[in-house]
Design a binder for these strands. Sequence first.
DNA 1: CAGCGTTGCATAGGCTATCTATGTCACGGC
DNA 2: GCCGTGACATAGATAGCCTATGCAACGCTG
Lengths: 113, 113
Amino acid sequence: MTATERDPIPPGTLDMLVLRTLAAAGGELHGFEIADAIERRSRDVLQVEEGSLYPALQRMLVKGWIHGEWGRTAENRRARYYHLTAHGRQQLAREVEAYKRVSSAIARILQPA
Amino acid sequence: MTATERDPIPPGTLDMLVLRTLAAAGGELHGFEIADAIERRSRDVLQVEEGSLYPALQRMLVKGWIHGEWGRTAENRRARYYHLTAHGRQQLAREVEAYKRVSSAIARILQPA
DNA sequence: CAGCGTTGCATAGGCTATCTATGTCACGGC
DNA sequence: GCCGTGACATAGATAGCCTATGCAACGCTG
């Protein structure tokens, strides 16, 4: 109730954040872990909804940016573990570059005078 | 054809950019001038489509963030000149704050290791 | 062993905001 | 009097995130 009111993911950035998180993780992560990692590394500013994450993972599977295989968690739950493909690594680089270009353009507009 | 391929406005940022542009302009600006100013200050990275700008201006008029009045350009064309209201100035501050909070959260995720 | 809480994945439907495409009005030049 | 252009406007398509809901499977407990 004490509304920690976290921010939603800005449209267009979720794919990049997921790819970046998978790239940072040495091994493989499943959905929950990806969402968790993003929220933690954002210092709990961002909130990743399941209803956003899973469709995003599906999209990226289809596009071949990630690959997933079913496995078991430490608690013996079934879960789908994802890792980046080479294609996904290139895509991540492209998205980061575009993001930086745009956000520094916005920064120029916001800066005083 | 040498496709200067500028970037579209990231969803959710257009209002802020318009408000900021009006705040920066000493006097009043009409639609074309607002779009122009945004594109110029972004060093031609961003592209503001009319079909995005005018609906945005309408929204903000309704919300009372801006006020507009019909006038004449230097070439004697009819045009609607906009300026910020006090309410709009507060809104701008809120949006800039939220934007910075979120974009620094994303920066933390993107930064290596 | 039946029920229940929890973990993890998944989808349907709606909403918001942008883009594309098109249209309108009026001024000025020829 | 016609046409190019400046400036505003809107309809429809599209993309992507969120809300809400549901399901399957594991383990615990009585």
